[in-house]
């Protein structure tokens, strides 16, 4: 554990908590892509199956349980409890275009051809593109509430901080995982356009609004 890794995890945790607070306080999931949230739930379920087979640390287990619970909880809030506020007309990204290629890729490019390893690889590939329905929704409506922007910024920062963690681990521990690194870089790059808008608009007190 290094400072970048910890900061990344805390950023990830903050993103999830911001999203839950937004939905709970406003009793609404307007502006949030249910499809991205379903993809994140699939990501966590397929990645954290090792909760049952391998104990790493209390920290590791607690975070995994929280990520699993919160992602499934978010899907529940969006599709059941606050279903009426879900903006499904604008949430139209076809997730099979993400699920099928990432599933195929995980069968071809993996460290080991075993069920656990393929599911882990699939979750890494899927996570890298899981935000696309959300970004597509923002671009379709042309705007995002400030709280949604903070959520996206925290979520994007998390994988960016993980890249610094991987650089650190490569130099100081000789450890690297090429699958995680490449997918993590793709994931971070997808947020670049949003980061630019966040820094130039939201941090200056303006609403995130795309040019017409």
């Amino acid at each position: 554990m290094n400072i970048f890794r910890l900061a990344g995890d805390l950023s990830h945790l903050a993103a999830i908590i911001i999203l839950l607070i937004k939905i709970w306080k406003t009793r609404s999931c307007a502006g949030i892509s249910g499809r991205s949230q379903v993809l994140f739930a699939i990501v966590f379920i397929t990645r954290y199956l090792d909760l049952f087979t391998n104990f790493i640390s209390a920290y590791n287990t607690a975070m995994k349980v929280f990520f699993l619970g919160s992602s499934i909880g978010t899907v529940y809030l969006m599709y059941l409890k606050f279903k009426a506020t879900y903006d499904h007309n604008h949430d139209t990204f076809r997730i099979e275009f993400l699920l099928l290629p990432t599933a195929l890729l995980s069968l071809v490019l993996n460290h080991e051809f075993s069920v656990m390893e393929i599911l882990w690889t699939f979750s890494i590939y899927l996570e890298s593109v899981a935000i696309l329905p959300q970004l597509f929704m923002v671009s379709k409506t042309g705007e995002a509430e400030s709280i949604t922007s903070h959520y996206l910024f925290a979520l994007g920062s998390y994988r960016g901080l993980y890249i610094l963690n991987w650089i650190y681990r490569y130099y100081f521990e000789g450890f690297y995982d090429i699958i995680a690194i490449v997918a993590g870089c793709v994931q971070t790059i997808l947020y670049c356009d949003f980061f630019y808008l966040y820094i130039t608009k939201v941090l200056k007190g303006k609403k995130l609004q795309l040019p017409a």
Binding site: D50, N54, N60, F67, H111, E112, E117, N165, I179
Partner: peptide, 10 residues
Amino acid sequence: CHCSSEKDEL
């Protein structure tokens, strides 16, 4: 090896 058994990241 980078198998599941060694994965400590989230």
